[in-house]
Design a protein around this nucleic acid. Structure first.
Length: 686
RNA sequence: GGCGAUUUAGCUCAGCCGGUUAGAGCGCAUGAUUCAUAAUCAUGAGGUCCGGGGUUCAAGUCCCCGAGUCGCUACCA
């Protein structure tokens, strides 16, 4: 399956610019991609690594509204943090740009237009609300009106927050535009769809037949999607934040964010090439030459977009190459819990860089050693400390220090003469012979965890060599032999500087400074003539430092604090809604009833089916709280509050006659509202 | 619920096309050693390979049923 490619284009998933980057992003995408890129460069291959912020989409506009700033201000803030922290962390992007850039708007726009002109889209027309004052179509949530169910005057077009009902804008009574306040009118609007179903046949062959080497999770998920049958996907949205749809009469419409984002890889490549044409050449050679190997580094939540949707877009255009591989990692957990931006459960890169100055490599090492390559993994601070102290310090750093200190002690820091190799020396040399090939084999198939282990193994061999040779004893009798031993130890040190360069670039650089090895060439790995006799070494400094318990405890405490803060203080209660008349409240019929029966609804994860004695007869109500009540039978006999005069509605084929009231806690957990003492069934709540 | 992935020593993970006593690193125990950031080196203890069936001369490895975990997806009146 290995073709001969001339050059490699590495893309990294675009971080969404509504928050900073955390260790999950790093472990899943950026550290492995950077290792791969550095390795390729070290080999002298032509390679570029593309990155950038994904800055469009509805969540950013919502965040902006909540904070009373513009979407541009939101993305400016996070783009800067993300870009700066990546750079400080040593992620070597050839370009790190953003999708709000001019060049991206043009690229994405042109891309759409070409597909449009080729007739690669399906157009569908539907009726949507239009604001004649603001002269634009209104996205669902920019329409407010009276909720047909509860009468709340300020329901949104997609949902009534008073009663929780999800709505269509057409359901609203007396709709109003949230932008101008005027009454919108219904107007026909077109939307464009990418007919993925049309692309299914070649996708099948391309993935299922020709890319069996993809990781099992990637291959499996693609197969699953293909077997289910692909559906057309909308590529446009009514929104004013994004890339405008470049079609006549499409004012107020933008490209849907998932369509626009992957094109960012292309725009960023163009930007890179335009900035330094002599270095990178024409952008098209990176995207349109079949001799370019395209590799997407992503997380597992992005598989379908990168393996099915984006390739379909590229194929629809017709002039682009397709990805050769899509190495997708699983997720990294933090101290046993899912990493979450909204819950602030994360180790943020920019904060790590502040708390651990100069320790980029420690985090790089730990994230690689514990990378979620085949399944979700857990990051713990204790493990972080152990890997630093027991591996980086004790094995790698210690060996380097021993070799250098001994050389300074016995030979004034000059590389001593080679000398005759003993059988044992030859054995040690033998172990280095296969290292280069071994590491390449692993790196080529994106197994960075194992590759890094190989590098660490070299330091282990070094430690063992010194322990077995005991030059500090021989120094009393045979300095020629000591010279030979130290020479070999120093050559091992030089090899370490090469082997670790893709993984621990800062430390490798530091090491090369110490031993005076300005150049770093992958081809030299496994050789033993890297440092010449008589070459002067610098005074050794420590490559890594031990991390004390107190430092780790402080980080753990920080996490515990955010957890607490999340649960209480950080929860921002929603603003109080508009006053309502007493009569409106009286329209709501809230009552108490006893649970006669309660069980999970088959084939639904969230639904519980209640049988309630309501004082008159009995009624069935469904409620989406199954997750929080794993033993529903325990609710039998207790009393709950419910809205009795709700329009009945069918869910999963069962008629639900009302709504059971729950409080939603700060963490999203739903807790039933229950009377403190038993009351008569059917009494009203006022 | 459907689909995909995953479940192997205390922890983190290897085990290709089924083949003799299941491996590595860390942690732990014991011993050796002092050049080194109490670092290193050696040895050792630790596993009904998630559970239950089946195919086979032979299964961690293949098939079926089930459980846990994660992702995509449907469902939270």
């Amino acid at each position: 399956m290995s073709k001969n490619f001339k050059r490699t284009l590495i893309t990294t998933a675009l971080p969404y610019a509504n928050g900073p980057v955390h260790i999950g992003h790093l472990a899943g995408v950026y550290v492995p991609a950077d290792i791969y890129a550095r390795y390729m460069r070290l080999k002298g291959e032509e390679v570029v690594m593309i990155g950038g912020s994904d800055e469009h989409g509805v969540p950013i506009t919502i965040k902006a509204r909540n904070e009373g700033i513009t979407p541009q201000q939101v993305v400016d803030r996070y783009h800067t943090i993300i870009k700066d922290s990546f750079q400080e962390f040593g992620i070597t992007f050839d370009v790190y740009s953003r999708t709000s850039s001019k060049i991206h708007h043009k690229t994405a726009s042109d891309f759409f237009r070409i597909l449009y002109d080729k007739g690669e889209f399906i157009e569908k027309t539907s009726e949507q609300y239009y604001d004649e004052e603001a002269k634009q179509f209104l996205a669902d949530r920019y329409i407010t009106g009276k909720c047909p169910h509860c009468g709340n005057e300020r329901a949104y077009g997609d949902q009534c927050e008073a009663c929780g009902t999800s709505l269509s804008p057409l359901d609203l009574i007396e709709p109003k535009s949230a932008i101008s306040g005027s009454s919108p009118v219904l107007k026909e609007t077109r939307h464009w769809y990418l007919p993925l179903d049309k692309h299914e046949p070649w996708l099948r062959e391309w993935i299922l037949e020709n890319h069996k080497e993809w990781k099992t999770n990637v291959y499996g998920q693609c197969k699953s999607w293909l077997d289910m049958g692909l559906q057309p996907r909308a590529v446009s949205r009514d929104l004013d934040w994004g890339v405008p749809v470049p079609v006549e009469g499409a004012e107020g419409k933008v490209l849907y964010v998932w369509f626009d984002a992957p094109i960012g890889y292309i725009s960023n490549t163009i930007e890179m090439c335009e900035k330094e044409p002599e270095k990178y050449g024409n952008w098209e050679k990176w995207w349109k030459d079949p001799e370019t190997k395209l590799v997407h580094f992503i997380g597992k939540d992005n598989i379908v977009f990168h393996c099915i949707v984006f390739p379909s877009m590229l194929k629809a255009d017709g002039s682009y190459i397709l990805p050769e591989n899509v190495p997708s990692n699983e997720f990294l957990n933090l101290e046993g819990d899912k990493i979450s931006t909204s819950r602030n459960w994360a180790v943020w890169l920019h904060e790590y860089l502040q708390d651990f100055p100069g320790k980029q490599d420690v985090l790089r090492y730990v994230l690689t050693a514990n990378a979620p390559e085949t399944k979700d993994n857990d990051f713990t601070w204790k493990d972080f400390q152990a890997r630093n102290n027991n591996e980086l310090v004790a094995i790698f750093g210690n060996f380097v220090n021993r070799a250098l200190v001994l050389t300074h002690k016995y030979f004034d820091g000059k590389v001593p003469a080679v000398g005759e190799a003993t059988d044992y020396d030859r054995q040690t040399l033998e172990e280095f012979k296969s290292v280069q090939a071994e590491m390449e084999k692993l790196l080529e198939v994106y197994r960075f965890r194992d590759a890094q282990k190989e590098a660490m193994n070299l330091a282990r061999i070094g430690n063992k060599y010194l322990a077995d040779m005991e030059p500090w004893k021989l120094a009393k009798t045979d300095m020629t032999r000591v010279a030979a031993i130290m020479n070999l130890s120093l050559q091992i040190t030089a090899n370490l500087a090469i082997a670790f360069e893709p993984f621990l670039p800062f430390s490798a650089q530091k090491l090369r400074d110490m031993i005076g090895m300005p150049e770093c060439n992958w081809a030299h790995l496994g050789h033993f003539n890297l440092l010449e006799e008589g070459h002067q070494l610098k005074e050794p400094t420590l490559l890594f430092e031990k991390i004390e318990d107190s430092v780790i405890e402080a980080q753990v405490q920080k996490l515990l604090d955010t957890k607490k803060a999340n649960e209480a203080a950080a929860y921002k209660a929603n603003p109080v809604k508009e006053n309502v008349a007493f009569e409106d409240f009286m329209k709501m019929d809230i009552r108490v009833g006893t649970v006669l029966d309660c069980q999970k609804v088959p084939k639904a994860d969230k639904l519980l089916q209640f049988r309630i004695a309501d004082g008159l007869e009995e009624r069935t109500i469904l409620s989406g709280i199954a997750k929080y009540y794993p033993n529903p039978e325990e609710l039998i006999g207790t009393q709950v509050c419910f809205i009795a005069n709700f329009e009945p509605r069918k869910l999963r084929g069962i008629m639900s006659e009302g709504m059971i009231l729950s409080a939603e806690d700060a963490d999203g957990k739903l807790v039933l509202i229950q009377p403190r003492m038993t009351v008569t069934n059917g009494v009203e709540v006022k």
